[in-house]
């Protein structure tokens, strides 16, 4: 049961959040073409290790929280607002 620190609400239980995937992919410019959008929507690094991802505080403040979480240990290194740049620890 992850404990996720929402930048607006403080530490909250996983039960309050909805996971919303890889936060390292950025929506391409409108004219970037199908291949760029294909990468944005479909392809993923899917690391076994630290992963920067979105958790939506759906049962809380309705804000998207950026989370750096380890996909093997489920340790959480950092959380922040969508516009924050979060440091990713070395393995």
């Amino acid at each position: 049961m992850h404990l996720i620190t929402c930048p607006w609400c403080g530490p909250r239980d996983e039960a309050e959040f909805a996971y919303r995937g890889d936060a390292t992919v950025a929506r391409p410019a409108a004219d970037a073409g199908i291949d760029a959008f294909y990468d944005y929507v479909y392809t993923r690094a899917n690391p076994r290790g630290w992963h920067t991802e979105w958790w939506h505080h759906a049962a809380g403040c309705h804000q998207f929280v950026k989370v750096v979480r380890h996909t093997l240990t489920h340790a959480i290194a950092a959380t922040g607002k969508p516009t924050d740049t979060l440091p990713v620890p070395a393995e």
Binding site: A18, R20, R27, W54, H56, A58, Q63, F64, P82, T83
Partner: peptide, 14 residues
Amino acid sequence: VMEHMEFHAQTVWP
């Protein structure tokens, strides 16, 4: 839909 709008407003076009 609400979440879809929040995602785009907060993370894509903040």
